[in-house]
């Protein structure tokens, strides 16, 4: 083993529930190591009782998000070299959610809010005659496209101050989802999507300070989606549709 690979990282990991604390572990530093590799090393080699969550390891499933050195990140695609200051890492569960244990946050409320935001496609009443033609250049299609790649990781939700201040706030991910559905011309209740997100628990609570966009690992811009919802809701209100 060369000198470089013998170096160790000092990793502070949150252990326990909401009232737990940090425990420090020493993990050998490797080239191209991800934060998830570090967590897995601790669980396999040092303490098998460590609880954490992951699945795909390639940035698709959205299950591995944690707070890394104070910031919400997807750990499977975050290289230690880009975030570890002076060989130190601090790992905690995602913020704005209750802690189940160790690095596992309880995402129940996060997903319940998707439901409350009516974040599901509503089929049209009559069965469609053939395929819906949606030109790729259509402005609505493009608006939906811009927000569609969400992997439900909860990073934006953990980064949003308004979620912390207003526990009812639906949050950036659910609102972004509502925006993609509102722009889906095949959806049978586009107005219903607006109704579900209007109000002080919905799009109107957003302060547009763009933390969600800053941290979204997929490079989405929920702030823009929410601004679109605000405009659409105001338009529907002025037309007397709300």
């Amino acid at each position: 083993m060369s000198e470089a690979t013998m170096r160790e990282l000092e990793v502070a990991v949150w252990r326990g529930g909401d009232s737990g604390g940090f425990v420090t572990y020493r993990v050998p530093e490797r080239a191209d190591q991800t934060v998830l590799d570090v967590v897995t090393f601790i669980q396999r080699r040092i303490d098998p009782t460590l609880a954490y969550r992951y699945s795909c390891r390639v940035g698709m499933c959205g299950s591995c998000a944690m707070t890394v050195n104070g910031r919400p990140r997807w750990t499977c695609r975050t290289h230690v070299a880009t975030v570890a200051k002076g060989g130190r890492l601090s790992l905690a569960p995602l913020a704005n959610m209750p802690v189940i244990r160790d690095l596992v946050a309880d995402m129940t409320e996060f997903f319940d809010k998707w439901r409350r935001a009516k974040g599901r496609f509503v089929p049209a009443k009559e069965s469609p005659k053939g395929f819906a033609r949606v030109p790729p250049a259509d402005p609505k299609r493009r608006a939906a496209d811009a927000g569609i790649e969400c992997i439900n990781c909860g990073i934006c939700y953990a980064a949003c101050d308004v979620v912390r201040w207003n526990p009812d706030y639906l949050g950036p991910a659910a609102l972004n989802r509502a925006w993609t559905l509102y722009n889906d011309v095949r959806d049978g209740d586009r107005l219903g999507h607006l109704l579900a997100v209007a109000g002080d628990a919905g799009c109107h609570a957003c302060h547009s300070h763009q933390n969600c966009m800053e941290f979204c690992p997929k490079g989405l811009n929920p702030t823009a989606s929410i601004a679109g919802l605000k405009r659409a809701v105001a338009g529907a209100y002025l037309k007397g549709e709300l």
Partner: peptide, 12 residues
């Protein structure tokens, strides 16, 4: 507040 009132408040 209802969605409608909240939208009016936002517009105001």
């Amino acid at each position: 507040m209802s969605a409608k009132t909240e939208t009016l408040v936002w517009l105001a």
